[in-house]
Simulated scan of single mutants.
Amino acid sequence: MENTRKNHIDINLCIGKYLDEFNYNTLKVSFKARSIIVIAVPQPVSRIYFTIKMKKKPVIMPPMYLFNTNSKLEKKQKKVIEVTSIVERVLCSINFRAVKINLPCKLLAVGSGLGSYGRNNICYIDDESSFYWIGVYISDMPCENDTWQENKIMDTCKDCNLCLKNCPGGAIANDRFPIHADKCITLYNENEGGFPKWMNSSCHNSLIGCMRCQSVCPVNRKHIDNIEDIAEFDSYETEMILAGTQLYKLPETTYRKLDTINFVEDYNLLARNLKILISK
């Protein structure tokens, strides 16, 4: 991780704050850490409907976002809490413990053999698809068979450049494996503020994040149409959101829908991101 930051200044400048949040210190855990457990939870693409001028506007949200966008808020996130309780219950049944920890999930998933990198820097689980949420836990369960391996890229990627061609910002390039962080759509629509001048409306395709590299990937082909409809906002609710109505002033039913799509904590981004999608 440190080498990546040193060798690629744009990564350190653009996403250094995320990398700084990783917690490598296990001293506060009440047990002796003896293993790392990496899990992958299937998570299809989500679809949300907003009503604009009496017409329903479908908007896509990539996998993972129903779980979290901010590691600091995981202790409040219902889906993360649910999955963690399952992990804890399974280990408890064999007299071991586990604690959720913020470590580089993709790197650990690939290093453990659970997944492989795609050319787009996204982790593909068992070379099957990228539509997963990855969680990392430390445990006192001994690791009898060490499966750690060198990072690898899927064989499919060796003769394929579809994600490179379809990236709206040109973040995926031939000059290096790490993406050019300053050209990634996700970097900008996950954070407050304006969009750079080069990012026109055609670049935007998701309510948050970006699906362009995943949607054309041959490995995802058999799963790309597996889309889950998760919420629908009527015209009144949509108007309030677009108007920037404060979260606490929204009706309880609207708040619950926002909670369903995991946009309570990121509500300050919703109006801006939605406006640019419906302007297309």
Rank of each mutant, 00 (worst) to 15 (best):
L247Y: 07
Y248L: 10
K158F: 11
K72S: 05
Y49T: 12
R119T: 04
F22N: 04
D127R: 08
D20V: 07
P178N: 06
K106A: 02
N268H: 13
K222E: 12
P142C: 09
L27K: 14
M61W: 02
D175V: 12
R256K: 14
T4K: 15
I230V: 10
V83P: 01
I230S: 04
L107T: 04
K152P: 10
K275M: 13
P168S: 07
E228M: 02
I94N: 03
A33N: 14
V83C: 02
N3W: 15
K158E: 06
I39M: 03
H223N: 06
I241L: 00
N268P: 10
V45Y: 02
M1E: 12
N268G: 12
D126N: 11
I60W: 05
A98E: 00
S116W: 00
K152F: 09
E239A: 09
C210F: 07
D229I: 13
V45H: 03
P63K: 00
L107H: 05
G209L: 09
S202T: 15
C210T: 07
G111L: 02
I179E: 10
D266Q: 07
N121H: 03
Y188L: 09
Y248K: 13
P196V: 07
E82M: 10
I11Y: 10
D155I: 12
I153F: 03
I48T: 03
S130V: 01
Y132T: 01
L207R: 06
F22H: 08
M64Y: 00
S46V: 04
N220F: 04
A171Y: 03
N145A: 13
V110N: 02
V90Y: 13
Y117N: 04
Q77L: 12
S93H: 01
G111H: 04
K249D: 14
E150G: 15
E228N: 03
R119C: 04
Y49S: 14
T260G: 08
D126A: 13
Y24A: 14
K55R: 11
S201I: 13
E192D: 12
G118W: 00
V216N: 01
L187E: 11
C203L: 09
S93T: 02
I11F: 09
R176T: 10
N145M: 12
P142N: 10
L27N: 15
I122N: 02
K76Y: 12
T147F: 11
D10S: 12
L91M: 03
N70P: 05
C123Y: 00
K183I: 11
P42T: 01
L207S: 07
N145W: 11
R89G: 09
N70S: 08
E239Q: 10
S206E: 10
Y137I: 04
I60H: 04
K72T: 05
L13Y: 15
T254Q: 04
D175S: 11
K183F: 12
I52W: 03
L274A: 06
E2D: 15
A173M: 15
K53V: 13
L91Q: 03
A40V: 00
F31N: 04
